[in-house]
Amino acid sequence: MAPAPQRPYKLPESVLVVIHTPALEVLLIRRTGGEGHWQSVTGSKDALDEPFAETARREVAEETGIDTQAPGCLLTDWALENVYDIWPQWLHRYAPGVVRNRERVFGLCVPLGTPVVLSPREHDAYEWLPWQQAADRCFSASNAEACLLLPRFVHPR
C-alpha cells in the first residue's frame, strides 16, 4: 500500500477579512476544536503568486459562503499588514524553519441580513456584534485591532 500523500506546507502569507454591515456590525466565527476562539475570516495563500485579494475572496467563500462580488458587497484592501510569530502548536503546518507569518487586512461590507453558511470542519458558530464588542471577543490581538480600526476605514475623515 502506498503511503498517503503529504499535505503541502502552508504558506506564511495570509489574509484577515473583517466582514461587517454598513452599521458596523462585525461577523465573528468560532473555530472548531474546543478552544472556542472567535475570529474574523483568515486564511493562507494557496500559491506565492496568488494576489491577496484573491485569497480574501476565496477564504470568505470557503468559510462563510459569502460571495464578495455579490450585489451590495464591497471588498476593500486596507493596505495594512501584520507580521507575527506563528503559534507553536501550528508550526508543523509550515515548512521547517518558518516561524513568522505576514497577514494582509481587508474589510468586506455586506448588506444587513447576508446569509452565512459555515464550513463545519473549520467553524461551528457565528454571530454579528457591534464593532467594539467584536474586538473584545476576538482571541487574536491583530484581529481585535482590525475591528477597532473599522470605523476609520468605513467613515474616513
Rank of each mutant, 00 (worst) to 15 (best):
E13T: 05
A4T: 14
E122L: 11
Q69G: 11
C138R: 05
D67Q: 05
P151K: 08
W90Y: 15
V41L: 13
V18R: 04
G33T: 10
H123N: 13
C109E: 11
Y94N: 03
R102C: 01
L16C: 09
V15Y: 01
L149A: 15
E81F: 01
V116M: 05
F52D: 14
P120N: 14
F52L: 09
E13W: 02
T55F: 09
F106M: 14
L150V: 09
P22S: 07
Y84P: 00
G97D: 01
S14T: 09
G97V: 00
I29D: 03
P51A: 07
L48I: 13
A141T: 11
N143W: 01
P156M: 09
H92C: 13
V116Q: 06
V98M: 01
C73Y: 01
D85C: 00
P88Y: 05
Q132E: 15
A125M: 10
V117H: 10
H37Q: 11
R152A: 15
V105N: 02
G72K: 08
T55N: 08
D136W: 06
H37D: 08
P22A: 07
I19A: 09
Y126V: 07
C138W: 02
A134Q: 04
K45A: 13
V15D: 12
E63N: 13
E25A: 04
R137D: 03
T42F: 10
E13R: 04
R121M: 12
L48Y: 10
Q133Y: 01
E35P: 04
R31N: 15
E59N: 14
V105Y: 02
L48E: 15
E54K: 05
N82D: 07
G107D: 05
Y9H: 13
V154F: 07
R31A: 15
H155S: 10
P96G: 12
A23M: 00
L148R: 15
H20S: 10
G36P: 03
H20Y: 03
D124K: 11
A141C: 08
H37R: 10
P96K: 07
R137W: 00
A134V: 09
V154W: 04
A56L: 03
Y9I: 09
Q39H: 13
E35D: 14
F153I: 08
A144K: 06
Y84I: 00
G65Y: 13
T21Q: 04
